[in-house]
Design a binder for these strands. Sequence first.
RNA 1: GCCCUCAUAGCUCAGUUGGCAGAGCGCAGUCUUGGUAAGACUGAGGUCAUGGGUUCAAAUCUCAUUGAGGGCUCCA
Length: 605
Amino acid sequence: MGRGYFFGGKMAAKHDADYKASDLYRIRHSAAHVMAEAVLEKFPEAKIAIGPPIADGFYYDFDLPRSLTPEDLEEIEGRMKEIIKGKFPFTREEISAEDAKKLFADQPYKLELIEGLEKGGLDEYGNPTDEKPIISTYKLDHFVDLCRGPHVANTGAINPNAIKLMNVSGAYWRGDEKRPMLQRIYGTAWEKPTELKDYLWKLEEAKKRDHRKLGKELDLYSINDEVGQGLILWHPKGAKIRKIIENFWSEEHEKSGYDFVYTPHIGKSQLWETSGHLGFYNENMYSPIDIEGTKYYIKPMNCPFHLYIYKSNTRSYRDLPIRYAEEGTVYRYERSGVLHGLTRVRGFTQDDAHHFCRPDQMPAEIDFVVEFSLSILRAFGFKDFQAYLSTKPEKSVGDPQLWHDAEEALEASLKRHNLPYEVDPGGGAFYGPKIDFKVNDAIGREWQLSTIQFDFNEPERFNISYIGEDGQSYRPYMIHRALLGSLERFFGVLIEHYGGAFPIWLAPIQAEIIPIADRHVDYANTIGAKLREQGMRVHVDSRSDRMNAKIRDAQNQKVPYMLVLGDQEMENNAVALRKRSGENLGAISLEALLTLWKGEVAEKV
RNA sequence: GCCCUCAUAGCUCAGUUGGCAGAGCGCAGUCUUGGUAAGACUGAGGUCAUGGGUUCAAAUCUCAUUGAGGGCUCCA
């Protein structure tokens, strides 16, 4: 999530088709070839792999005699620009597999791709395809590449001032960690230099919003080496925001018919055998703890506990639906290379819930949970959503009819809510279909948060049931869902979404009280106490710094309100309000301030 | 886990061919008492990530370990 592509994330299928037909796609694809020619000139012994266009540019993978340096990239980029100015045509040629093999005799990666094409079923990037394989090459200046195209007519169609090589990194051949590690050069290319400039500006903007940077600057959280990788320390300000999120979350759940439960952090190995996690989730679980000769595991999931709460009593069809919600803290082993700030961690708290319902309630239950998810996410300022529906994979458990009904209910609900969605056929977990929601943040990046998943596995394994109207025992539907995903990841996304300038209802400090001189500190404390009594989160800056410095600090801390207090305010029993927008509202009464504040908190702005 | 890069004060970073550890911010103290984005001075603060090696001498060269960053892979 958020990796690999800076913006746009994974593109929706229909957009993908548009993109592939676009001039930009040709430009990027062609730029990749130009780059390969430049690299081969510099390293004639280089082995070349593949070089496709991607969301914001292109890359090409090489097997090189040495690691590339930033200076190499500059040199290659410079040479690319020269090649582009040569206006060399791209000429396509269709050739036989034998000829292709001769042509690429000293290029082992290309030979492997040709074999894939020859056998059929794989395209020139080694991805599965149904198309009849035609082997074609594109020639550019001295460089001939195995390629399906399309390309620009000649390199003159590439604007040399709208391309830039970004970075070099390792990448496995064919994405397989058992195959050789190649060097991948990433580049970006646009039609116009202004578009390149905009893109680079956006990257800068994204850097400024990076939750790891803001987390430090705003003193929200930290990760400490000695504590451990991927484990979050929530500082007071971060914890305050979390508490507000949790309170809001609890109230909304309470109103919507959820019951809250609490469950332990460890459970016996038997529990995880029953649930099946020791089988299919083992590699994400930590080693067991021995307690009096019995093995206990730290929980990677909350569901087995919720199932036992369900099972603690005989359930009637009248009891359903049952909705158990818990902010459950789980620990999962993630490989060290994948950890990332707050968004990918080893210990996190899911805003988890499990729904149990009758078959006849299932479509309504799905509708409810979709609606509920959206209303929660909207409260945090997210407006655009993209839904992904993942259906039955080949290997699965559960009655195909149940799968079908569930998939239909999920899709129907997406349609009813007018949500843009994309189907990932066969992309579901083995135990049930699911919907994932991604949100677009303030600068258009996509983040995965909510997930709604059917489970046809655990109800069987735990043998849960309810008694129907006819006195017979039936198996309920079980749905897992997390709306925010995890509080850690959600917090990270929120920080980036708001760029650290949290709306007033979430701001850990809502007002910084700034006495102008020491003789105003008592008055500031009095005002502070009054506001605090009303529930406003205020802080009095009683340092002997100048007012300007205090305003600057409050501004950098992105505090929504700054209340400046001097002689005039003391005389009139008022406060001078400055907002972090820079707007100076002048002196207003406490009553006026409280009214404004209450309004803004209620509107969540 | 893999490839590349990196690790110096609480933070952001300098530190030349190996030769006494530096700045700004922050913090503490003193002065200043101010009107909407940085007032002045003084001071404290470091086992240069950790452990080996080379050298008369290592922050600097080298190896290993740990951690971080950009990717790959992974994220039922």
